[in-house]
Design a protein around this nucleic acid. Structure first.
Lengths: 231, 231
DNA sequence: TTAGACAAGATAATCGATTTTTTAACCTAC
DNA sequence: GTAGGTTAAAAAATCGATTATCTTGTCTAA
């Protein structure tokens, strides 16, 4: 796998003893930014972050620089870092791009994926369902959800497509995770995950893409609602 | 414009006195990496870079962190930074993604672009032609070429699409700029720029996209040849 | 009253030195 | 000879302090 992000950025669980302070704080900040722990538009007080993440200035600044290049922060020369503002236009843009790119990736994955993929996919879907049933809609569910979507498109054959999709997911989740749960739509979305697996296993690319479009569209409606309530 | 990169990263000319050391070295390193001034796979000696760019350790490391998150460097925890390797597979991936994304962007730009865009486009094409005629195939031509392609897709309406295209261009140019000029194909490509402008002004999205596909395909052949000679 | 100048405090950026980790050379035991 | 272990040198990461820049509040002059 051609990988540009530092080791920790791809790691799933917590970074082991080998992780640098810079990477640990990058991971942590990334999660916090995506999870909505900062106010959009807010200026980051570097000294406060030093305390919060128990880290020195140098590794903290390196992490902030990475996050800015990744798109989860805005960097303005001589005036530090801020959390990007949210906007309806951008949400629309992100959702539209997800439609295009994840659709493309899913079609390719269905064409390329081998039986190992099928197994991974079933496993990822199962783990996600367990979390659904136990009503865990916290960090653990978020992680399994990300993991499921990642697995779904993994064998698309394009490192760059996967990279862009990952980035778009992070951006999308800044909107989706603004507010509290919405159980009704949530359940509908959860069911689609299983239908996606079935269609993928049947290698029905067309139907799978249509369902994926619908899935992203429904998620978009959730995100939009939360964005509007949040205003 | 929703902008995540630091001020300097979008600036066209040299950064003014307001630029930070970090941003200056980011710009400079980016140019050098895209222009092939480093050997692919090479490990960067940070102390040597300090000398080369006349900058201290902190701003240099911040620049390297940004470049890694941007995809022009690979960062491995505890063992510094290296220039990403080149591979046939990756070149194919990048070219394929350019086809998809720039095609999409061009169609949208043709649908959205106003008369100011038409003027900008004519201007960008003209400047590029001047550089062609004066046989300047150096940094200046490269800059005008980038600028032309940027202008072409600018009004596509998607900040994220533009961002990804920019990134792919940088990656593609790591291959295209491996070797010396190839005057014959070069001339052919230069002519296509003007045909692209004409089709754009005529709002012929279909023909424009086909020509863009051909343009990228021809560029791909150049890049591939250089990559193979370079091995 | 208000635009502009100024100074003081706060914040960002950078530097030089220190600590930690990796790399490579060498040695020893099998 | 070679695998495994030790250590010295090199490199990466981090820290603490300094310098540069921005921000805010206050004052002055029109």
């Amino acid at each position: 796998m051609n990988n540009y992000l530092p080791t920790s950025a791809k790691s799933v669980g917590p970074v082991g003893p080998a992780g640098t302070a810079s990477s640990r704080v990058f991971d942590h900040l990334r999660k916090d930014l995506v999870g909505g722990r900062f106010v959009a538009g807010e200026k980051l007080a570097i000294n406060a972050l030093k305390e919060r993440y128990q880290v020195g200035l140098s590794p903290l600044r390196e992490a902030l620089n990475r996050l800015a290049a990744y798109g989860l922060l805005v960097q303005e020369n001589q005036r530090g870092f801020r959390v990007p503002k949210l906007s309806r236009d951008e949400l629309d843009d992100i959702a539209q791009m997800r439609l295009e790119m994840e659709g493309m990736a899913l079609e390719r994955a269905i064409a390329n994926g081998d039986s190992l993929w099928e197994a991974d996919l079933l496993a990822a879907a199962h783990r996600l369902k367990r979390a659904d049933i136990t009503l865990d809609k916290g960090e653990e569910w978020e992680h399994l959800h990300t993991q499921f979507h990642r697995t779904l498109v993994a064998p698309c054959g394009s490192v760059w497509l996967l990279r862009f999709i990952e980035q778009l997911h992070d951006q999308f989740d800044r909107y989706r995770r603004l507010g509290p749960k919405m159980p009704t739509i949530r359940q509908e979305l959860d069911e689609q995950h299983h239908q996606l697996v079935e269609l993928a296993l049947q290698r029905d690319a067309k139907a799978a893409r249509e369902l994926m479009d619908d899935h992203i569209h429904k998620s978009y409606e959730v995100a939009l609602k939360r964005y509007q309530e949040h205003m």
